[in-house]
Design a protein around this nucleic acid. Structure first.
Length: 183
DNA sequence: GTGCGACCTG
DNA sequence: CAGGTCGCAC
């Protein structure tokens, strides 16, 4: 009721900055690059991001936007995995161990479609391992009825957050979006 | 106070 | 994906 909507956070980006200060926003190319980076890291720190987007003039807004992107990536990722985990449960899967995400599985297709649209990047095998583990964790949790707890996903996030791997140096190159589009 | 993450919404 | 809110930690 009448409260000012001036909450802190991303919305505070609009300030009286000179044209030169507020220049250089993130481009579609940066987004594409970020999506591919997701195959290696699900929880990149702002520090790490700064070292992989050397062509970006970081500001609180830019940093927040990049962090937000990965947050959105994770959201999509976990939703997809959970969906397939529940589906496997309904289909009568018994051993969580038998749930492996391969390059020809439907889950992979969905994820690859989202983060690697043109399928022009070779997804690292490590990502398949992480995805498989995530799938198994969700499967086991749901099967055990853990989802009754409002915060049942937290333990899973904790596990997955420790599985980030190093990002290839090639990603540091400004126009890497082009070179990476091989194989 | 600020930064970050999850969750919800459009 | 961006916008906003809430909660947690520093």
């Amino acid at each position: 009721m009448g409260m000012d909507m001036l909450s802190s956070g991303l919305a505070t980006c609009r300030h009286s900055l000179t044209p030169r200060q507020m220049q250089e926003a993130l481009t579609p190319g940066h987004l594409k690059k970020a999506k591919l980076m997701f195959f290696f890291t699900r929880y990149p720190s702002s520090t790490l991001l700064k070292t992989y987007f050397l062509d970006v003039q970081f500001s609180r807004c830019i940093t927040s936007q990049l962090i937000k992107w990965f947050s959105n990536f994770r959201e999509f990722y976990y939703i997809q995995v959970e969906k397939f985990a529940r589906q496997a449960l309904l289909e009568g899967v018994v051993d969580a161990c038998t749930l492996q995400v391969s390059r020809d599985s439907e889950l992979f297709r969905a994820l690859n479609m989202h983060y690697n649209k043109g399928n022009d990047f070779e997804v690292p095998g490590r990502f398949l391992e992480v995805a498989s583990l995530t799938l198994q964790e969700f499967f086991s949790a749901v099967r055990a009825g853990k989802d009754a707890d409002p915060s049942w996903k937290k333990p899973i996030y904790k596990i997955i957050s420790k599985l980030d791997s190093d990002i290839p140096e090639g990603f540091k190159a400004a126009g890497c979006s082009q070179e990476l589009l091989h194989s």
